[in-house]
Write a protein that binds this DNA or RNA. Structure first.
Lengths: 335, 335
DNA sequence: GGCCCTCATTACATCGATGTAACGTGTTGC
DNA sequence: GCAACACGTTACATCGATGTAATGAGGGCC
């Protein structure tokens, strides 16, 4: 059987509470006593029972991270950063996938309320409706990304500005017919809307008239879905001068399609993505993209979360993460 | 304050234990009573406290998944599958990253012993030494991948056979000088050794003499590291006929280098990977690779884990997952 | 020397859910 | 009509750690 405080106390010749005091370090314990207790803990190979501790003081040391799909490089990189940063600060991370399924988001909420979780970092997809529950008796929540409603603390990259800057960068290379891939398909993703808006703003500045036929919707933001959408598009339309994909994953799918069709990047078409996932640098050709520090996203989210644990009533806060247009081979200036 | 069984019991006019009985469904509860209790639970928006439940019955409903690096597509896809399958069976998943740091693996063990975790699925890297702890007072463990020691239940893909088959497939296209990328660099990865062995076996069958200069080591199994290793290699050696990368991630790094140098794939060199990550299909050109069902890996791991929870003493089991050589553009037969 | 004060340590209750064993009810059998 | 029997329900103890309030010992001060 596993050793408990009681066992340690008996072996050290003290009371259970003293053992607890040694572990927590709040209540002072005399040197010799502390030493005996530590010896006993080592000897019995004592490990505290986190369920008991969690029950007693209402906190478990676990936070949940909810992402649409861990299989996506973007989600995976965010998860990686969050796990790493959280770990450094002594938190464990429970991963939940919401998929495109709203019921999962609901389950998630109830699980979050079950006290095994001290906080929740949520990267919403559809959510706007389910997040209404925020604040009922949920632990603190921090949202990642663009969300229309102001429901909780939030960390995001300014999608409008970034999409605008990227479009301007493409325009500056002399490309006129700039298409975007990833516009809201069926369900309206907030990010899709914002990035489309930034694109639109930039067109205005560039003096390029809006052209509906250059806005390519895409059901999901995956390479697969992007490849299908682009294939269908190219079957029915001329090749644009540039293609701005709303995520790198889509850009990678697009690259594959373009290559199969013998459309050269960047000679025939400039290609840009968004997110700067690890593989963007190794795409063929390497991918121009909107880059931002994912570690920073993670650490800011965690900071907001822990601060919110202290003060549940303070004003809501929004942290914007800097971004940068990284120009790589896929948009090199034409000759 | 959050509602507890007591509150529900009071409202329903029964004892707390009856509420518990309704939830657990083991002890029979009469229809009307059950109904009153369920009403009360709904009205109070009752959510059970999992810490308390975990303390009482020694299980938390959480399993841990420990991977080297979530940022890697391979790890991410495995994590995705595990989370999905686990969720279907009512488990939550806590993610731990071991990185290349053995101390993390140790921390992980002690965390796993802290009772917030009912089981552990571990994809080891260096571990052979740390896993010695398995069995002390750890929860059930299932290992993923190749491990030399027989410490616990295990799910794996037969790396030797797969590497052999892939090498044979490359040989069958008429390529003679077949190189491998990813051989054990500094620390000895078990998988690297096994895949190298399969490669060696195949060379024998093909009647191709072993050539040390075709075995390219690589420090980490990342695109980055692969790109560096291959660049250095090509600076000092002629271009091989074929290159078998021990992971798709490395192959993607290799593709990028080959493209930059104007070495055509598959015309000048055939390229193959291992793992069949999502992006392999969208690489330019699409990547020939060793494919296996990651969902199956996850479900088998979970099956072994849950069965091990029932019977901690049974014999150790090893489940091999079928693999398949998927031939794509990167190894198309020469003219 | 006696009193008080400090500071480490202790006994006990508590967090919330649930297994155990005892306890009513209402039913069946003779 | 009374004993025996189900079956649902209850009181209580328990899981392990920790906050609270009380206890004890030791030291300093007058």
């Amino acid at each position: 059987m596993r050793a408990t405080v009681k066992d340690v106390a008996r072996l050290a010749g003290v009371s259970p509470k003293t053992v607890s005091n040694v572990m927590n370090g709040i209540v002072p314990v005399s040197g010799p006593t502390r030493f005996r207790v530590e010896q006993a803990m080592a000897e019995l190979d004592y490990v505290p029972n986190l369920s008991a501790r969690g029950l007693r003081n209402g906190r478990s040391g676990v936070i949940a991270l909810a992402l649409p799909d861990l299989g996506t490089p973007y989600s995976a990189e965010i998860a990686h950063s969050v796990v790493e940063v959280a770990h450094q600060q002594g938190w464990s991370v429970q991963i939940e996938e919401t998929g495109s399924d709203p019921t999962r988001e609901y389950e998630l909420m109830s699980r979050a309320r079950s006290n095994l979780i001290d906080g929740l970092i949520l990267n919403p997809v559809v959510l706007d409706q389910s997040a209404v529950k925020v604040g009922v008796s949920l632990p603190p929540v921090v949202l990642l990304g663009e969300v229309s409603q102001k429901l909780a603390d939030r960390v995001w990259v300014d999608s409008i500005a970034a999409a605008r800057d990227m479009t301007l960068a493409l325009g500056r290379t002399g490309r006129q017919r700039i298409a975007v891939l990833g516009a809201a398909g069926g369900r309206g993703s907030a990010a899709a809307a914002l990035r489309t808006r930034g694109y639109q703003d930039a067109l205005g500045e560039l003096g390029i008239p809006w052209d509906d036929s250059l806005v390519i919707p895409c059901e999901k933001w995956s390479p697969d879905s992007a490849a299908r959408a682009l294939t269908a598009y190219l079957d029915a339309n001329p090749v644009p001068d540039a293609l701005f994909c709303f995520t790198d994953s889509m850009a990678i799918g697009a690259l594959s399609v373009l290559w199969k069709r013998g459309i050269r990047v960047p000679e025939d078409i400039a290609l840009a993505g968004f997110d700067d996932i690890a593989d963007a640098k190794f795409a063929v050709p390497s991918l121009t993209t909107v880059s931002f520090d994912k570690r920073r996203v993670a650490s800011e989210a965690l900071r907001l979360l822990t601060e919110r644990m202290q003060d549940r009533e303070g004003p809501q806060r929004v942290v914007a993460i800097d971004y940068e247009i990284v120009e790589r081979e896929s948009t090199v200036n034409g000759p």
